[in-house]
Design a protein around this nucleic acid. Structure first.
Length: 414
RNA sequence: AGAGGGGUGGCCGAGCGGUUGAAGGCGCACGCCUGGAACGCGUGUAUAGUUAACGCUAUCGAGGGUUCGAAUCCCUUCCCCUCUGCCA
């Protein structure tokens, strides 16, 4: 959630910032007005309520002394209906404000480039040079089936389209990658977690998936539970509604979980292969940070994720997302895109974001410093998407016969 | 799933209709004491909104009701614990 006081006091600046994310000024104006309305209703309610509290106390004193209370009682009864009305309008004002506020995306950082979509993203740098093949490299789906690593048909039979099965060496490589990622993240200071794969709606609201993006979530029937779309949800919300000691910051966490997404809105995209599945494995990093340190930690997280790809010998590039491509909660995002020789394309394999205090405000994650409570900054990033790494290894490490070499750093995990 | 018990501040725990935002304890912070520390003593210590500030308002799992007045009474609901059942 954005800071409404900031919106109120710096409307033009705020509105300019959110233009980058495609929020029009009229919506923000409405939000600002609703905020003002709420304040007015609160003042009206609170002052009347104060009067009631005062007279009620007096009433008690009268009673104790055995004085006549009929006059007071008449006054209080009149106040009562007024208060009910005032309270209701204050509540309505709050509800409509919140309903709108929860759908407004985060402010992008000033450094975020202007742009409409992924075509306007800005490349930061390339790491490792794609190797030259003296044959035409194949795409991963062919390689996966030929090597007996991936069974697409039976995945569909078991569930539906966009599900697949890994087997044999493919399954083992998946597991090896998970272990390699977790171990490397641990060395970088990220403590390992094993988490519930279903979270309740309050948590999904905290990290920003709800209320706006419920369509992309698998919901459990008759329960207030959703399959997590990323470990960012449970990891960040470990501290939901908590006040952490400033000395415990930064809190660095990592977890492997399967992730579940309906992929609403991506109909027809990446229907072949394992790029876009309803269920996929990911190792995630999350940081709960002091606002002064979040930029530094962001850089560290990018380096760590990029380091994983480098260690695996996978050519990749770092991309700064433009305003139009930036996620709902992110103030700044760097994507890592891995080179896929079969597709002759760089494809997203990690996304590292600083949400600043946007999630913290929703999830009420604060830190206490000098007796004062403030919102923390939360950061998240994949390190890495496991299935996509598997694909990248298949395509980058294939030989002319379609056989796949195992990267050196993974051999001890196989 | 059935029966019973319970949800109060960072934690434990009292309160069971009116100066209670909440006794007491633990923890924590600061001060005194000490050569230094422990012990001891003193002071302070919930969250959010609003205010220049004093203060005011809300919050005792959540929602609703009774009442002039609810942490306290009633209803609904969620969660936790124990026993029984089931089960990896």
């Amino acid at each position: 959630m954005i800071d409404l006081k900031y919106l109120q006091n710096n409307f033009d600046e705020a509105s300019m910032k959110l233009q980058k994310k495609g929020v029009d000024a009229d919506t923000l104006k409405m939000l600002k007005d609703m905020f003002a309305t709420l304040k007015e209703s609160n003042v009206a309610f609170e002052s009347t309520k104060a009067e009631q509290n005062r007279l009620s106390k007096e009433f008690g004193a009268y009673k104790q002394k055995g004085q006549d209370t009929s006059e007071l009682k008449a006054k209080l009864e009149a106040l009562k209906s007024e208060i009910t009305k005032l309270q209701e309008s204050a509540r309505n004002a709050e509800e409509s404000l919140e309903n709108l506020a929860l759908t407004i995306p985060n402010f992008p950082d000033d450094a975020v480039p202007q742009g409409a979509d992924e075509n306007d993203n800005v490349e930061i740098k390339k790491v490792l040079t794609p190797k030259a093949f003296d044959f035409t490299p194949k795409e991963h789906w062919g390689l996966g089936v030929a090597n007996g690593w991936i069974d697409f048909e039976r995945g569909v039979k078991l569930a539906k389209s966009r599900f697949s099965v890994l087997k044999g060496k493919g399954a083992k490589l998946e597991r090896a990658l998970i272990n390699f990622f977790l171990d490397t993240n641990a060395k970088a200071g990220f403590e390992e977690f094993n988490l519930p794969l279903m979270n309740n709606s309050a948590m999904l609201l905290g990290t920003g998936q709800l209320p706006k993006f419920g369509d992309d979530l698998f919901k459990i029937d008759d329960e207030d539970l959703y399959l997590i779309p990323t470990a960012e949800v449970p990891l960040t919300n470990l501290y939901n509604d908590e006040i952490v000691d400033v000395n415990s910051l930064p809190i660095l966490m990592s977890a492997y979980t399967p992730c579940f997404r309906k992929e609403a809105g991506s109909a027809g995209r990446d229907t072949r292969g394992m790029i876009r599945q309803h269920q996929f494995d990911k190792v995630e990093m999350v940081a709960i940070a002091h606002p002064d340190k979040s930029d530094e930690i962001f850089e560290m997280m990018v380096e760590n994720a990029s380091g994983l790809l480098t260690a695996l010998g996978l050519p990749h590039r770092l991309v700064m997302l433009c305003g139009g491509d930036l996620g709902f909660g992110a103030a700044k995002t760097v994507d890592l895109e891995v080179w896929l020789p079969g597709q002759q394309k760089y494809r997203e394999i990690s996304s590292i974001s600083n949400t600043r205090d946007f999630q913290a405000r929703r999830a009420k994650i604060r830190y206490k410093e000098d007796g004062k409570n403030s919102f923390v900054h939360t950061l998240n990033g994949s390190a890495l998407a496991v299935g996509r790494t598997l694909i990248a290894i298949m395509e980058n490490y294939q030989d002319e016969n379609g056989e796949i070499e195992i990267p050196e750093v993974l051999k001890k995990y196989m």
